[in-house]
């Protein structure tokens, strides 16, 4: 799973740097992902496993770099007129669910739940943008596929852990949000499978 999200980050960085352009990438989605990583990894200084620590740092720093590329270095290639999804709704959705059903009423747990819910919908500005343009460069489609499968692959992992480690190891919030996120992606996955995998251009019907 970890390698999927790293793959998605490297594909995106490769796309931006190689093509000297961030066209087709939603700045709003990228900002939401930064917020997701920051609110989820607030425990960074106390992370026990060095493996997790390294990945948390990698995720936050690479996301900051992506934002820097989009906001500074390749700003002229970023078209805000196509990126018009109202993110207030997504922030509100994540905030309300985080406040209503946290694992515990502590700041850290509410922030964690917020980040999980926000991640599940953070791709919507990107998918909305895709819908407006109707097509995407192959590399953008690969990026979205890697990002989407990251969370989708957690689902078989959770099922496996449910049977090997028992129900107490399963996080209800993470599972529900992970399934929601995968459902939001399902349309995209289908077009990716029927078009891009067969070498055609990613184009909406």
């Amino acid at each position: 799973n970890i390698f999927r999200v790293l793959a998605s980050i490297f594909i995106l960085l490769h796309k931006i740097v190689q093509l000297k352009s961030c066209s087709g990438i939603s700045f709003k989605s990228q900002m939401l992902y930064l917020l997701v990583y920051i609110t989820r990894y607030l425990d960074l200084p106390w992370t026990r496993s060095s493996y997790n620590f390294i990945f948390k740092v990698l995720f936050i720093s690479s996301q900051c770099y992506i934002i820097y590329l989009m906001a500074r270095a390749y700003k002229p290639t970023n078209d805000p007129n196509l990126d018009t999804f109202r993110v207030e709704f997504l922030l509100g959705f994540a905030f309300i669910l985080a406040i209503l059903f946290p694992v515990q009423y502590t700041f850290l747990e509410i922030a964690w739940a917020f980040s999980i819910w926000l991640e599940s919908v953070a791709i919507l500005p990107q998918l909305f943008m895709l819908q407006r343009t109707g097509e995407a460069e192959a590399i953008t489609a690969h990026y979205l596929f890697a990002l989407g499968t990251y969370r989708a692959l957690y689902i078989p992992n959770w099922i496996y852990r449910y049977y090997t480690e028992g129900p107490r190891k399963v996080d209800t919030i993470a599972v529900v949000a992970g399934v929601l996120q995968t459902l939001l992606y399902s349309d995209f996955f289908w077009i990716y499978y029927t078009k891009v995998v067969r070498g055609e251009k990613f184009k909406l019907p």
Partner: peptide, 10 residues
Amino acid sequence: EAKVDEKDEL
């Protein structure tokens, strides 16, 4: 359910 600093998922 594991607390934030005990979670092994990222």
